[in-house]
């Protein structure tokens, strides 16, 4: 899984990071034995891999470049489409081999019958100290909750919503991974900039009567709206 911050400026293209879930197949040595076992398993769940993007984790095996290519061909013959590689030496991987992926995060293991995933744990980051000028908190995985204040010159980037129980004096960027439903709450709005999914508003563009008050920011029809929370 990968995630990156949304990048946007007024006159340039929009680039977004997005997270997807993929299965990771980890072959073991000797490969012929592992393939035989794989074939046996596939006979029980014939269409399991149909149309699914699969990552090949090579950390557990040592394969040369031609062997990796051979393995991908063998898997393709079994209807397994490899979209990326993990755990291989970067110098071994170049086109036409699939790209090397990094920074994947583990999800709860799936049962081999393809049973439903366990519900995802709610993801939030709780910060109990004030966020000082110059500090930057980036949490693409979910909500950020700040009990203290966010100082002028500090910034928070969250994949989800941002909740500030003190004064928000710095920059808050919610929904950075393309989440248009993210919101920003603060008990005192003195923000330098607020942004949701790349739509932003600076202090100068905010209504003066909202300054210093508890506010909520959200995206409505691609317009960032800021309203008092009272």
């Amino acid at each position: 899984m990968t995630a990156a911050a949304a990048v946007r400026s007024n006159d340039s293209l929009r680039l977004r990071g997005r997270s997807f879930m993929a299965f990771v197949l980890a072959p073991a040595l000797p490969i012929t034995e592992w393939l035989a076992q794989f074939d046996k398993w596939c006979r029980n769940s014939p269409n399991f891999f149909a149309g699914k993007p699969i990552i090949l984790d090579l950390a557990g095996v040592t394969l040369a470049r031609p062997e990796i290519a051979e393995l991908i061909t063998l898997l393709a013959a079994r209807g397994v489409r490899i979209m990326g590689l993990e755990g291989a030496q970067p110098d071994q991987i170049s086109p036409p081999l699939p790209p090397l992926l990094q920074g994947g995060r583990e999800l709860p293991a799936m049962t081999s019958d393809g049973g439903a995933l366990r519900p995802k744990e709610p993801n939030s980051l709780l910060i109990e100290t004030p966020i000082r000028s110059g500090q930057s908190i980036a949490f693409p995985a979910g909500d950020v909750i700040v009990l203290g204040s966010v100082s002028s010159g500090a910034e928070i980037v969250a994949g989800g919503s941002i909740h500030v129980y003190g004064a928000l004096r710095g920059r808050a960027m919610a929904g950075s991974t393309g989440n248009t439903r993210a919101r920003i709450f603060c008990s005192r709005n003195e923000a330098e900039l607020v942004s949701i999914d790349g739509y932003y508003r600076t202090a100068e563009q905010m209504d003066a009567h909202l300054r210093g008050r508890p506010t909520q920011c959200r995206l409505q029809d691609r317009v960032l709206s800021i309203a008092a929370l009272e």
Partner: peptide, 17 residues
């Protein structure tokens, strides 16, 4: 004054890290 206070805030962040 504001510029001094903001710089102090930055320094406090460094002291804490």
């Amino acid at each position: 004054e504001v510029s001094s206070v903001r710089d102090s805030d930055r320094i406090i962040g460094l002291l804490d890290s």
